[in-house]
């Protein structure tokens, strides 16, 4: 449960720390929270991108850098309502990771569901750990 408490305190972080270049589009950019797991088959990444649909997200892997980007437009006004209280901001998402494992680029899968992006990055066949049979002799 300690994880939960910790994550609650982590606010939606604005990206920018590692981004050296400026973007042409103005507006806020947020850094999505991610979970990354690994097994012998490959890496699986989950990213929280609330407000982004499947057509808004782009995932690229170039020179061992995996980039996740999503364009989210702040909602147009809700009728004639005024925003009376706000706890979260709405904007684009950006985050990039260096992937050191050799990845089979043709078999990468990415899927959006309920604001969560899931990327499966299968390892190249030769990078998978192999059990070496020991022969008696």
């Amino acid at each position: 449960m300690a994880d939960v408490e910790k994550s609650r305190e982590v606010k939606k972080q604005e990206a920018g720390g590692g981004v050296a270049t400026e973007r042409t589009r103005t507006g806020r950019i947020y850094m999505p929270n991610v979970d990354i797991s690994e097994d012998r088959e490959g890496l699986t990444l989950y990213a929280d991108l609330p407000g982004a649909g499947d057509e808004d997200v782009s995932v690229t892997l170039e020179n061992d850098v995996l980039t996740i980007e999503a364009k989210v437009s702040p909602p147009a006004k809700v009728g004639d309502h005024r925003l009376s209280y706000a706890e979260y901001g709405v904007g684009d998402y950006f985050r990039a990771f260096t992937i050191t494992e050799p990845i089979d680029r043709d078999r990468i899968e990415a899927k959006m569901k309920d604001g969560v992006l899931r990327i499966v990055l299968p390892k190249k066949e030769e990078a998978k750990p192999k059990q070496i049979k020991i022969q008696a002799g």
């Binding site: 991108l49 009728g79 004639d80 309502h81 209280y85 706000a86 979260y88």
Partner: peptide, 23 residues
């Protein structure tokens, strides 16, 4: 501790609350 975060839009006749709870 406030999860999920909410935004509140107030109108004359109703309130609209949006909340980010992905997944």
């Amino acid at each position: 501790a406030k999860y999920p975060p909410v935004n509140v839009f107030t109108g004359e006749d109703d309130v609209v609350i949006t909340s980010e709870i992905p997944g």
